[in-house]
Design a protein around this nucleic acid. Structure first.
Length: 232
DNA sequence: GCGACAG
DNA sequence: ATCTTGTCGC
């Protein structure tokens, strides 16, 4: 599928922040009315020493939660990991993998934040805008904001607030297990983001599309593309 | 100036 | 994120 060229990638951290301020204004955070039948989970892993990034995308159908397609990509990192600038390190690799999909998914589920970000432009926002797709950020830890612990039972949730505004929700996907941090990326509302995460839940803390993408990138990194094909 | 800080 | 076996708990 097509990828929009919104800006250069070989930029400095300062320029990256400037780009985030510019792109955030193009986000559409209204309730998306379209039908979402397929969700694409994306994830990235990297070598401890080699500057190699491994990306994977796993497309799941919401009806029966069946995996329809997967794609991977191996690239070289050109940007360091800096809190708040994660997308400038991981997005290029993810885009390469997504471009290889035969069919475009209806929504993107990312391993990171959406608008629950200091400049309201996390990885999910960036990818959603570049691919022109509704997107959701589902992170395993906090980047910004404050919240009160949700009840211990599954599906309990509380608002994630930052500087007086809601930027996401803290969602318990399993009884008594640490919650996940869900925030809209692009063309997405809080309620719908929460519903999609719960609908793609497969018994583990993180939703299935993202979890499968995680398993796939690790298989790709450890055992190479051949083994990754079997795991996909 | 001192912490906090997605993956 | 990555380095890694067993082990505590439901």
């Amino acid at each position: 599928m097509k990828v929009r060229r919104l800006h250069p990638w070989n930029v400095s951290p300062t320029e990256a922040i400037c780009i985030q301020h510019t792109l955030r204004r193009r986000l559409d955070l209204r309730e998306y009315g379209g039908t979402i039948e397929t969700v694409a989970g994306v994830d990235v892993s990297f070598d401890k020493y080699a500057p190699t990034l491994y990306a994977a995308v796993v497309v799941m159908r919401l009806n029966d939660r069946q995996i329809l397609e997967t794609a991977t990509a191996v690239t070289t990192s050109t940007f360091p990991y800096i809190p708040g600038l994660l997308s400038f390190r991981e997005a290029p690799a993810v885009l390469q993998a997504v471009k290889r999909l035969r069919r475009a998914p209806d929504c993107l589920l990312c391993d990171g934040q959406g608008i629950a970000h200091p400049r309201r432009f996390g990885l999910a926002c960036h990818l959603g805008l570049l691919l022109d797709l509704p997107s959701i950020g589902c992170a395993k830890s906090l980047l910004v904001g404050k919240y009160r612990e949700p009840a211990r039972k599954r599906r309990s949730f509380r608002a994630l607030l930052d500087k007086g505004e809601q930027v996401g929700i803290i969602l318990r996907t399993k009884d008594g297990v640490a919650p996940v941090y869900v925030s809209p990326g692009h063309r997405m509302s809080f309620p719908r983001a929460r519903k999609i995460v719960l609908d793609t839940h497969g018994g583990y803390r993180v939703p299935e599309p993202t979890r499968q993408a995680h398993l796939l990138v690790n298989a790709l990194r450890r055992d190479g593309p051949v083994s990754a094909l079997l795991h996909g």
